[in-house]
């Protein structure tokens, strides 16, 4: 696994990292809960066939400025600008995971003509009283990894500090990522996205780990039912909420198959 190219763009006066790797059609990825402190195998697989572009959501690892946004409109404008500056709003396919998926869906709802295709991995943004989404911000330390991944070690490895990193700033960066997600989605994960899904008219691939402990299966039906564009739903075996961590090959394969259609 080689390192991606790292650039920084300006979003509302704050720096946000943009990783890119590979050649071919451009494909974007907005990360899931906790963000990406490290490049992951899933992105490497995609980079074999595509130019993979990974902007950091403000507050997620590599991105700053989350405290600048006080409401959902401000967040969506920031995400729009983040994607635009990353050259991902030119009829491009965008993948999102968890909170990133919810934000992608909102962008597609607000600016339907700018997105070619969407892949949403266990998207946040809706809520059911009958089947509540898990509360990712009310967990003991050891429970978070079990909540996020079918193989908790994958989360632990992603979040562990690489040798040589500043020992103070690394954990603060991880903590900031959780805060940024809370700033957008506290307390229920519900941004009212369900009402806006009808405006999503591009083709959408919906993926969910069979063992996802955060997003109930029924949420995928809600997405599928409300999105105006054609939807395909796939479940990933032996995968949890961050299916791209648990099963990078299978998730990448499903996405590449969807993109090439």
């Amino acid at each position: 696994m080689t390192e991606p190219i790292e650039n920084y763009i300006d979003v509302s006066g704050y720096k946000c990292r943009v990783w890119s790797k590979g050649k071919g059609d451009r494909i974007g990825f907005l990360p899931g809960f906790g963000g990406l402190p490290k490049w992951i195998p899933f992105l490497d697989i995609l980079a074999e066939d595509y130019e993979v572009v990974v902007p950091s959501i403000p507050g997620f690892p590599g991105g700053l400025g989350h405290n600048n946004y006080d409401n959902h409109l401000e967040w969506l404008l920031a995400i729009h600008d983040l994607l635009q500056e990353s050259k991902l709003l030119d009829k491009t396919t965008i993948i999102g995971s968890g909170p990133g998926a919810s934000l992608c869906a909102d962008i597609a709802a607000l600016w339907p003509s700018l997105i070619k295709k969407l892949c949403l991995i266990s998207p946040w943004g809706i809520y059911s009283d009958n089947e509540p989404m898990a509360d990712p911000w009310a967990q003991r330390a050891h429970e978070v990894s079990e909540l996020m991944c079918d193989n908790p070690e994958l989360w632990n490895n992603l979040k562990s500090e690489p040798a040589g990193k500043n020992s103070v700033e690394w954990p603060i960066e991880q903590s900031r990522a959780l805060e940024a997600s809370a700033r957008i989605f506290w307390p229920l994960g519900n941004t009212g996205l369900e009402k806006r899904l009808r405006r999503v008219c591009c083709p959408v691939l919906l993926l969910r780990g069979v063992n996802d402990k955060v997003i109930p299966k029924s949420y995928m039906k809600t997405f599928s039912k409300n999105i105006s564009g054609q939807t395909t739903t796939k479940e990933i075996n032996q995968a949890g909420h961050l299916a791209e961590l648990d099963q990078p090959d299978i998730v990448a394969k499903e996405i590449m198959s969807f993109v090439s259609l």
Binding site: R140, A141, P171, I172, Q174, L178
Partner: peptide, 13 residues
Amino acid sequence: NGVANTSALPGIQ
């Protein structure tokens, strides 16, 4: 039987 989710916080950790 557990600790708060403070593992991301250096001082607290």
